[in-house]
Design a binder for these strands. Structure first.
Lengths: 149, 149
DNA sequence: CTTATACCCGACCAAAATACTAGGGTTTAT
DNA sequence: ATAAACCCTAGTATTTTGGTCGGGTATAAG
């Protein structure tokens, strides 16, 4: 039940954009270096984030990436779901699956469990925004002046 | 973030034991057939459940497996955790890991998110027992006499 | 006391998913 | 022009998953 690197790197990259980004685009290279992610790999991930409308890109020299919305409007859930798909513990409770894979019946005893797990994960990750992370970061930094990431 | 077959089969097998088991041991073969799990594979899973103290085994002819405790004392969480390990979304918030893998600092902004996810999953799965599943099953069966599993 | 049943155990293996790398575009500021 | 930087597809090594296989050992029944 671990998240893959896609989701983890995605969160790191988006947080980096929220922290270091502004009006001018942030080149992929800078994000990749700060977050210690391979540039070519991060490029694939950020392409998904762009297609999902979470970041905007500026092509050409001096180009790069920008958050598509203010940090307070981007949830951790939208980032993770974009890069990992539904966070359902089993196929049959993922979005748009509609009992897929339950060939023997259209309902089962265990399905209720998986639904509860999925709902609780969703409610946690949809309630956290990049702004919340920035606030946490500020608080941590204030305590002892160390650079946390 | 999907559960592997280990956790799913484990839940199925334990539910089968709760539903069809009694004072006499249930042979592995019977469970495997009802739940459509390969006998050899289920044997590996149930060995883990036995070592974790969730089932008892009786060797020899007419042997088999029994729940080690009443269904009301066995949680879905204990079963899944036995077969899948900690349900932490990332390594560093798994039990007994203590910040493992965070070489750059002893805390990070994202760690808080992973902890919240883990805690919410744990609280859901630890609150459901095999007895709850039996009750759900009874309710489903009462409605329309179909055999649900 | 033999035999069949059924648990016990470790090694091995194929398929799928993951985590990348490689390389060739295209766009655009300078 | 040219170099910076995004864009896209294909391939590939490693790891994880989901098993199989084959040989034990314990014991109830006849």
């Amino acid at each position: 039940m671990r998240l893959s690197t896609r989701g983890r790197y995605g969160i790191k990259a988006m947080f980096d954009l929220a922290l270091h980004g502004g009006d001018t685009p942030l080149p992929l290279k800078a994000i990749a270096e700060r977050q210690e992610i391979s540039e070519a790999y991060l490029e694939q991930l950020i392409a998904s984030l762009r297609k999902a409308g979470l970041v905007k890109s500026v092509r050409g020299a001096q180009g790069g990436y920008l958050l598509a919305c203010p940090p307070s409007e981007i949830t951790v859930g939208s980032i993770i779901r974009t890069l990992e798909g539904s966070l359902a513990p089993v196929e049959c409770v993922a979005e748009g699956e509609e009992f897929a894979g339950c060939e023997k019946s259209n309902f089962c005893v265990t399905r209720g469990i998986w639904e509860k797990i999925k709902d609780s994960i969703d409610s946690v990750i949809d309630s956290i925004t990049l702004q919340d992370m920035l606030d946490d970061y500020e608080k941590l930094n204030m305590q002892d002046n160390m650079y946390y990431i």
